[in-house]
């Protein structure tokens, strides 16, 4: 359903409009909240609050951004608040130095990069990924979730996180390489 039609139905309080909104957006919002490190309970509260805030402000929603961008933006800020309350420490290792260290003076690989490439994504590898994702900062996790999992366009992802397109590229670079380095360490210990 297009955003325009959905908003019209919601504003008219048509039967089934709230159900349709919940059906379409709950799972993607929950997946994002979980990937951003919230507990199941905190994730459910954040998603509920995001949808409630949207419906409360429905008549003032002007549609300048897509509905998906708006909802993910609200959720992003709620998740950030909760993570600050839980006093989670941000990852501080220098990804640029770690990445540069993989290459010699001519920019050639020092050694073969190793890790899963063609393997089926079984429960063990999912668990590795979950654990490695804990090493990402809030912004890195958000960028990676929005671009890779939710396939949000660059411009929309930039609005949600509040960064430029260049910075979004940097976030994606750091997120992917942190995950790859972490997975490589686990892979080599197998």
């Amino acid at each position: 359903m297009s955003d325009q039609n959905r908003l019209r139905e919601l504003k008219a309080r048509l039967p089934g409009s709230v159900e349709s909104l919940v059906e379409e957006f709950t799972s993607p919002l929950m997946a994002a909240a979980r990937s951003w490190g919230l507990s199941e309970r905190d994730a459910q509260e954040a998603v509920q609050d995001s949808l409630t805030d949207f419906l409360t402000a429905l008549d003032r929603f002007e549609g300048r951004s897509t509905l998906k961008t708006f909802l993910f933006g609200v959720l992003y800020h709620k998740c950030s608040e909760r993570r600050r309350k839980n006093k989670r420490e941000e990852a501080t290792e220098d990804m640029e130095a770690a990445f540069s260290g993989r290459f010699g003076s001519l920019g050639v690989w020092n050694s073969l990069p190793r890790g899963p490439e063609e393997e089926a994504v079984n429960d063990e590898l999912k668990a590795w990924l979950e654990e490695c994702a804990k090493g990402l900062s809030d912004e890195q996790r958000s960028a990676f979730q929005l671009k890779t999992v939710e396939n949000v366009a660059t411009e929309e992802a930039c609005k949600i996180i509040g960064v430029s397109a260049t910075n979004l590229g940097v976030l994606m670079f750091r997120a992917r390489n942190k995950l790859r380095e972490c997975l490589e360490k686990k892979w080599m210990k197998r």
Binding site: A31, P116, E117, E119, L129, E130, F144, V149, R176, R180
Partner: peptide, 15 residues
């Protein structure tokens, strides 16, 4: 290939 795998695994885990 490893980066593509990470993207695919992320979609299958969180998507």
């Amino acid at each position: 290939a490893q980066i593509r795998w990470i993207d695919r695994a992320a979609r299958e885990t969180w998507g």
